[in-house]
Every structure is written in structure tokens, then in C-alpha cells.
């Protein structure tokens, strides 16, 4: 999500972090651009060099007791310096009562101040994890996402090639639907992809001739899953007799989404090909590769050994 506002942050996390807005309401339009959280500490003493001011600030026991110990004049001065930096928001942990000067200055400048009963470390951790997800680069992909034997498989292909039928067949075999025809993909920790459907149409599918079905209601809650890490991409395409399809599986093809390379398989669709079964096997083969066994390479090695024994 680009340009997350403090207001959006507050709306989605007020329950989880038990946040209460106590000052600076007019600053709710401020943008949060990074997911890290900062403890201001030294900044309150006036040392602002290297201050991570783009981060949300969490004030814990140290900060609050330091501020309380100052004379009102000095306190006002220090808070003024702190708020001169452009910061997105502050959260006060353990429901500490913030000094009056902090609240009035926050109201004046428009920096949202929240209070939370959570202890500082837990608050910081939860906040970072939640923000990480909210500010992560994301994109949408027109494809299906199914969890097959624990492997998150994207199924794509042109309209009418049989994606939905194949997905339904997988669900019927006990695998889990994440989304039909639309995947919202988030880049997590810059290294892996997390996919989910749209909230509105979640777990619904359109099957030509049947119309819209609700997979969760028909197949049960065990056959759906809200989100899933994306591990493998399969493209279904009508069998092209002129085209050479992969015969060995020694070379890997990849699909790049948000800069992450996902192993990619092209499956030609033809009469008598049980696509759901083929995708199950692709998922199992992917798992066994992750466990360190590559079927094609292993057999090729055996053949090469045999060839060298028989060398003339």
C-alpha cells in the first residue's frame, strides 16, 4: 500500500494494539512510509543527530520518566525540539500518562499521539510486523491461488483454458482455495510473496455454466485459506503442436513478481490430461526439490554413471 496514512494505520490496528488517540488529531493525514519503529530516547535530551524521524515513535518508561523529571520549562523545550522533526506518530506504551506539554504541543503541530496498554517491547514488535505488511510493495495478478500439499501454487492462463475447473478439482481433492482470478500479492521482508484474494469476493468462484459458487459453504472451511506464501507458478495453455514443451525438468524457468523469482511451469492442456493431478505432482516435485532431491538431476546422474561404466 503506497502512502499509508496514520488514519489508516489507526483504523486497522486500534483493536490489536488497543490504541487510543489522545492528541494531534489534525495530523491523522500524515504518511507512514517505513515499517520500522523508533524509541526516541536520546532525541528527547536534545541530541537529534541520526534521529530516525520517518519512523513511528514509541515512548516507553525511559522516555516518560525522563520527561517527568524535567522542569516544566525544560520539558516544553525538549518536546518542542522533538516535534520539530517530521515524525508520523507517537505511541505511549503501558498507558503511561503523557506530560501535558506533550499533548498540547502535539495538538498545536498536528502529530497524532496514541496510548496503548501494551508493554513497550511487545508494542514495538506488533507494530513493526503489522506496518511491514501495510507498507510492503504490492501488486495484483490475474490468476488463481491454491495451496496444494502446503505449496502455494499460482495457476494462470488465458480465459477459458480451464483454470477454474482445475482449481475446483484441486479443492475437491482436499486442497485449499485462496483466490479465484485475482491475487493481491505483497512482497514480504523483501524476499517472499504473500498472496490473498479480495475481501469482497473471497472464496467465491465463477464456473461457466454454473455461475457463482461459494467454495467455503460448499466444500467447508477446511478447503479454503485466507492467505498463502507463493511458491510455484503454473501456466496452463492450449497444446501447441509446434511448440517444444519441457521434457526433462533439468532447466528451471521463473516468473518474476515484484522482483521475486517464482519457479514456473508451463502445462499444455490437451484431452485426457488430468490437470489437477499434474498440478498435485508439480507441487510434490517442488517440495521434494526443496528437501534437496531433484528427480531429473538424480536420474541423469545415474544414467551418466552407467554410461561411464559402459564406456568402450
Amino acid at each position: 500500500m503506497k502512502g499509508l496514512t496514520v488514519s489508516q494505520f489507526y483504523d486497522s490496528l486500534r483493536g490489536k494494539l488497543e490504541l487510543k488517540l489522545v492528541a494531534g488529531e489534525k495530523g491523522l493525514k500524515r504518511k507512514i512510509l517505513i515499517s520500522e519503529i523508533n524509541r526516541p530516547g536520546l532525541v528527547l535530551t536534545g541530541y537529534v543527530k541520526f534521529f530516525a524521524n520517518r519512523r513511528g515513535q514509541v515512548l516507553g518508561k525511559v522516555e516518560i520518566s525522563y520527561l517527568r523529571g524535567l522542569s516544566p520549562k525544560l520539558r516544553k523545550e525538549k518536546i518542542h525540539i522533538f516535534f520539530q522533526q517530521k515524525i508520523p506518530f507517537c505511541i505511549i506504551a503501558r498507558n503511561y500518562i503523557p506530560p501535558r506539554e506533550l499533548l498540547s504541543e502535539a495538538d498545536r503541530i498536528g502529530i497524532p499521539i496514541f496510548r496503548s496498554p501494551l508493554v513497550t517491547t511487545r508494542l514495538t514488535n506488533l507494530c513493526t510486523i503489522a506496518l511491514e505488511e501495510m507498507v510492503a510493495p504490492s501488486t495484483s495478478v490475474i490468476a488463481n491461488l491454491v495451496e496444494v500439499y502446503g505449496v502455494g501454487v499460482i495457476i494462470n492462463g488465458q480465459s477459458g483454458v480451464g483454470k477454474s475447473e482445475c482449481t475446483l478439482s484441486l479443492v475437491e481433492r482436499g486442497h485449499r482455495l485462496v483466490s479465484d482470478d485475482y491475487i493481491n500479492v505483497h512482497l514480504m521482508e523483501g524476499t517472499y510473496l504473500l498472496g490473498e484474494g479480495s475481501e469482497l469476493t473471497r472464496f467465491h468462484m465463477e464456473i461457466r455454466g454454473l455461475g457463482i459458487i461459494d467454495v467455503r459453504t460448499l466444500f467447508g472451511v477446511g478447503c479454503v485459506r485466507q492467505r498463502k506464501r507463493i511458491d510455484l507458478a503454473v501456466t496452463l495453455e492450449p497444446w501447441d503442436r509446434e511448440k517444444e514443451y519441457e521434457r526433462l525438468g533439468l532447466d528451471e524457468d521463473y516468473l518474476s513478481i515484484l522482483g521475486v523469482e517464482i519457479p514456473h511451469i508451463v502445462l499444455p492442456v490437451g484431452p485426457g490430461r488430468d490437470l489437477a493431478l499434474l498440478i498435485e505432482v508439480a507441487a510434490l516435485n517442488h517440495r521434494i526439490k526443496l528437501m534437496g532431491y531433484h528427480s531429473a538431476q538424480a536420474l541423469d546422474k545415474q544414467i551418466k554413471d552407467r554410461i561411464s561404466q559402459g564406456r568402450i
Binding site: E244, R247, L248, L250, I303, K304, I307, R311
Partner: peptide, 14 residues
């Protein structure tokens, strides 16, 4: 030199 291992075999059947 390597004989009929997987890659030549794939080219052959293609």
C-alpha cells in the same frame, strides 16, 4: 563424449 545422457536424449526425442 558424454554419451546419451538426459539432454541429448531430450533433443533426440524432440
Amino acid at each position: 563424449r558424454l554419451g546419451m545422457h538426459a539432454r541429448p536424449a531430450a533433443r533426440l526425442v524432440q
